[in-house]
């Protein structure tokens, strides 16, 4: 599992990457009340805004961590956005992306580096 400075976690699953937000991010955001997911089949570039989440406090964007194609989204989150706060690293993943260039994953932190990053 890898981590971005934007507090996303990236978990390889076969030839796909599953993307969600970390416990730390979920805690900072507070209760999540709205999730908007991208359409399956969308081609995205690294740093594109692909998911919008709204907490009780504010709106935030989830960025595409790498170039690729969105091949699956976690549709139940739209009806039950509170899941993001309850199980951010498990059930509440946002989307699965098929990487265009798997080497882009090398840029990201491992768990120890992420834990040091959030201090």
């Amino acid at each position: 599992m890898k981590f971005t400075e934007e507090h996303e976690w990236l978990r390889p699953e076969d030839d796909l990457i599953v993307v969600g937000i970390t416990e730390h991010a979920a805690e900072q955001l507070g209760d999540i009340v709205f999730v908007e997911l991208p359409e399956v089949g969308t081609e995205v570039s690294k740093d594109d805004e692909v998911v919008v989440i709204e907490s009780v406090k504010a709106a935030s964007d989830i960025l595409a961590p790498i170039d690729g194609e969105i091949v699956e989204v976690n549709e139940p989150l739209v009806e039950d956005p509170g899941k993001v706060g309850e199980d951010p690293t498990g059930e509440a993943w946002f989307f699965k992306i098929k990487p265009a260039d798997p080497s882009q994953m090398d840029d990201y932190m491992d768990e120890a580096a992420y834990l040091a990053y959030i201090g």
């Binding site: 507070g30 209760d31 009780v56 509170g82």
Partner: peptide, 9 residues
């Protein structure tokens, strides 16, 4: 702005 329970609770 909030305590441990969070805004919603």
């Amino acid at each position: 702005v909030q305590y441990a329970a969070g805004v919603m609770k």
